[in-house]
């Protein structure tokens, strides 16, 4: 038995134990604040790390409490879209099938078929896209290799050509296989595998059409694998590929975000 515990057992606690404990706990915040402001060097680093972990835990707990407080039962009020009686009162999972009818109607009109959420597609000049790599001994002459400075997509079966013939070099660091795709009506974001890059209908010079390789930049359309979302086509089959439009600058951000075109 440790001696403090033994002592407490033998002689009891100080009369002001609880008061002191309360005061100590009350000063805890001040202490933390002082440490956070005044510690320097390695100790500051360690302290910050510890504090970071604590805060994460704290937020998680708060979130759990919030979720617990949410009322379980469905609301009495009418759902927004008419549904048959056998679907009433069910907490219908906001499924990806909420490819809302309005968007479907829009697709039916031919004019709107290729309208994309971000209409302004900026052209990319060759200077911006390529960096010249000079190879060989006669460096001044052999400037026929290009490094692509934009993110690219290469399919799973892609193999690089022999060095001698590799005109365009797609750097490994700028290749993407997955995109964070947001479903516009559901406001959910899921990471989906990219299937390919689509020729941009608004500007045939951009995208897959002009260059012999798929390019991932702001506004470009990509095709993503949505089989996990359970979207169904009009003929009753599970939709596999859907188009999405890139909404960020992957070359600056290091990630690829897109919005699903439904």
């Amino acid at each position: 038995m440790r001696c403090i515990e033994r002592h407490t057992k033998l002689f009891g606690k100080r009369l002001d134990t609880e008061e002191r404990a309360r005061k100590k706990a009350a000063r805890e915040g001040h202490k933390q604040s002082e440490n956070a402001q005044n510690l320097r060097g390695l100790r500051a680093k360690l302290y910050a790390k510890e504090r970071h972990a604590q805060k994460i835990q704290l937020r998680k707990t708060i979130k759990q409490h919030e979720e617990r407080n949410v009322k379980g039962a469905a609301d009495e009020k009418e759902p927004a879209n008419p549904i048959p009686s056998y679907l009433l009162d069910r907490a219908n999972p906001t499924n990806a099938k909420a490819l809302s009818s309005q968007i479907k109607n829009k697709r039916a009109e031919k004019a709107a078929r290729f309208s994309v959420p971000i209409p302004k597609v900026k052209g990319i000049s060759e200077e911006e896209l390529f960096k010249v790599v000079k190879t060989g001994k006669k460096i001044a002459k052999k400037g026929w290799k290009r490094v692509i400075t934009k993110p690219t997509f290469v399919g799973p079966d892609f193999t690089r050509r022999p060095v001698k013939y590799e005109r365009f070099i797609r750097p490994m660091g700028l290749r993407y296989k997955k995109a964070n795709v947001t479903h516009p009506t559901l406001n959910v974001t899921v990471q989906l595998p990219i299937l390919g890059v689509k020729k941009n209908p608004n500007n045939p010079l951009l995208g897959y059409g002009y260059f012999s390789f798929p390019l991932l930049t702001f506004c470009h359309s990509i095709e993503v694998n949505v089989s996990d979302l359970g979207i169904v086509t009009a003929s009753g089959k599970i939709a596999w590929g859907r188009y999405a439009q890139v909404t960020n600058n992957p070359e600056n951000d290091g990630c690829l975000n897109a919005v699903l075109l439904v």
């Binding site: 099938k97 169904v232 086509t233 009009a234 003929s235 009753g236 089959k237 599970i238």
Partner: peptide, 8 residues
């Protein structure tokens, strides 16, 4: 009749 848009 199903949610998958078809009748069978």
């Amino acid at each position: 009749g199903s949610k998958d848009c078809t009748l069978k």
